[in-house]
């Protein structure tokens, strides 16, 4: 579906330049496609699918600078999704869970999107509590409480860039914690 590629890529490129609404739309559409992708491949463990959707959403957001403008966006997106899936299956195998064969269904087109705003088993709120205080505060203020960065800077006395960097580091740490949590 070439039109999906064009539209998604348009949103993504705007998001790269700092258009938050475009990035949000991109991630929402991507999450619907990823949900279809993971549910197709984890038929025997559908409850894992949403965990993987969220892990992959964080990965494609925090790693968006690794997209090469010369490649199709869907190729980039599904390479990351596939990486997260293989990582998941490997962890599961190490735990002695059932081995699930990875079929090689074509990934060139977007999977049929599934929009249902599902809940994952990851408890992000609990994971946030384990972050260092500064990162936690930065995420709470500018990510969860919908304050502007400027307001948060006035509240905390930290500089705006300091807050942004702390929130960014916190999100990355969150991604690592989600993967580690899935390990157990």
């Amino acid at each position: 579906m070439a039109s999906d590629e064009t539209r998604l890529r348009g949103l993504f490129l705007k998001g790269l330049e700092g258009d938050e609404a475009a990035q949000r739309s991109f991630l929402l559409e991507a999450s619907a496609a990823l949900r279809g992708y993971f549910r197709n491949r984890l038929r025997t463990a559908p409850e894992d699918a949403e965990d993987l959707v969220q892990e992959t959403i964080i990965a494609i957001h925090t790693k968006r600078h690794t997209y090469d403008a010369a490649q199709p966006l869907t190729a980039w997106l599904y390479a990351i999704a596939r990486y997260r899936l293989i990582d998941h299956l490997r962890r599961q195998k190490r735990r002695g869970g059932p081995a699930i064969a990875l079929d090689d269904a074509p990934e060139a087109a977007l999977a049929d999107p599934v929009h249902d705003n599902a809940d994952a088993r990851h408890d992000v709120a609990a994971l946030l509590e384990r972050l260092p205080e500064k990162q936690r505060t930065a995420i709470r203020l500018i990510k969860l409480e919908e304050k502007s960065v400027r307001e948060a800077a006035v509240l905390t006395g930290w500089s705006e860039s300091d807050l942004k960097v702390s929130a960014h580091r916190g999100v990355k740490a969150l991604a690592r914690m989600m993967a580690a949590e899935a390990d157990r």
């Binding site: 949403e50 969220q54 600078h65 960065v149 999100v171």
Partner: peptide
């Protein structure tokens, strides 16, 4: 956390992407 809420958390006050090395 719902996936939509996670996406809102990720993008809010985010600004431009970091640069490749």
């Amino acid at each position: 956390m719902k996936t939509e809420d996670l996406i809102a958390l990720l993008t809010r006050n985010e600004g431009a992407a970091e640069r490749a090395p």
